[in-house]
């Protein structure tokens, strides 16, 4: 599959947005400027961005608690995302959701989810709607390695399989469920192997290779769209930062982290585009500069936005 230059440029821009967005969020946190907690996906940008970009207009996604790259990848507005993190009225959830619940059902984003594995069943249901209404759309359901040990994983995959629902379960395996290394929480090498017990395809991809991810998701979506039932994709990747804002990371070595940093998905895409003479280094620099400016603009938008009115605390409990 040869991707158009425009697609790769957009992908590169979104991956940069994702990383810069999170670096900015980390900075806000370190200064106590945002409330609560946040889970950053720095290092996992290919996984979140390239997968979403392989979807078609009208397809849906369900995101994880580590969902900023996924949201940016799906094309959400970084201004409104930043505003949500700052708890502002202009945020995607009017300041009521925060980092863990960025959602925009209208555009097909069924929401980030604060419950590990919380998206599996929701995605199966959203896929049921697509099947029932014959929309031809698919649902891309993100989850982490740890989430595949939840009961909801089993119930949702089994149901999706027997009902042949149009859903792709995209597992971002970053090797740690919070602090617990994968070899201590499951006894298999590849999570994709779990697909066998549901009678569905299970595919492993290099989670730091945006092109492989794009291609795999696009191909899977094509099959899923035909009504052949769900697919499980395991994207092997790594998070560079801690689980959440308070993580001393005693469970892993600096060497391991350094090794993964060499596999930086953003550098990889940059080099690919330059090596294949699609863009010059200067043009790539310009894109990065543009991404920086866009993030600064998002920060300004968010900072300038109003706080939600106190009365809104009672709004929207019921339709």
């Amino acid at each position: 599959m040869t991707l158009a230059k425009e697609t790769l440029v957009e992908m590169y821009l979104r991956m940069n947005h994702a990383r810069l967005f999170e670096e900015k969020v980390a900075w806000f946190f370190s200064r106590g400027m945002v409330h609560g907690t946040t889970h950053l996906s720095v290092g996992e940008e290919a996984s979140g961005v390239a997968s979403c970009m392989a979807l078609e207009e009208g397809d849906l996604v369900s995101l994880t608690h580590r969902g900023h790259s996924q949201a940016v990848g799906f094309g959400l507005d970084i201004n409104r995302m930043m505003a949500e993190l700052l708890g502002k009225e202009t945020g995607y959830c009017k300041g009521k959701g925060g980092s863990m619940h960025i959602a925009d059902i209208e555009s097909g984003n069924l929401g980030a989810n604060g419950i590990v594995g919380g998206g599996f069943c929701i995605s199966a249901g959203a896929a049921l709607t697509q099947q029932y209404k014959k929309t031809g759309k698919v649902v891309l359901c993100f989850a982490g390695d740890g989430a595949t040990n939840e009961g909801s994983f089993h119930e949702a995959l089994n149901l999706a399989s027997i009902w042949k629902l149009p859903v792709i379960f995209f597992i971002e395996n970053n090797l740690y469920a919070m602090s617990t290394p994968i070899e201590k929480h499951m006894n298999i090498q590849d999570i994709a192997d779990r697909a066998k017990s549901y009678g569905i395809p299970g595919i492993v991809v290099d989670g730091n290779d945006p092109l492989e991810i794009y291609e795999t998701v696009a191909k899977a979506a094509q099959e899923v769209r035909k009504g052949k039932g769900p697919v499980l994709i395991e994207s092997k990747t790594y998070r560079w930062l801690g689980h959440s804002k308070s993580d001393a990371q005693a469970y892993r070595t600096k060497e391991e982290l350094a090794e993964w940093k060499l596999k930086d998905p953003i550098k990889r895409l940059r080099n690919f585009m330059i090596d294949n003479k699609m863009m010059t280094a200067e043009e790539m620099d310009k894109l990065e500069e543009q991404a920086k400016q866009n993030i600064e603009a998002a920060v300004k938008f968010a900072s300038d936005s109003p706080e939600p009115p106190i009365e809104s605390v009672l709004e929207d409990v019921y339709a």
């Binding site: 849906l60 369900s62 059902i105 069924l110 599996f120 069943c121 929701i122 995605s123 199966a124 249901g125 959203a126 896929a127 049921l128 709607t129 697509q130 029932y132 209404k133 009961g151 909801s152 119930e155 949702a156 089994n158 149901l159």
Partner: peptide, 15 residues
């Protein structure tokens, strides 16, 4: 779990 969860996902998307 998936009865309730799939119902929620289906409801949020138009059923």
């Amino acid at each position: 779990a998936v009865i309730a969860g799939a119902a929620a996902g289906a409801a949020a998307t138009g059923l």
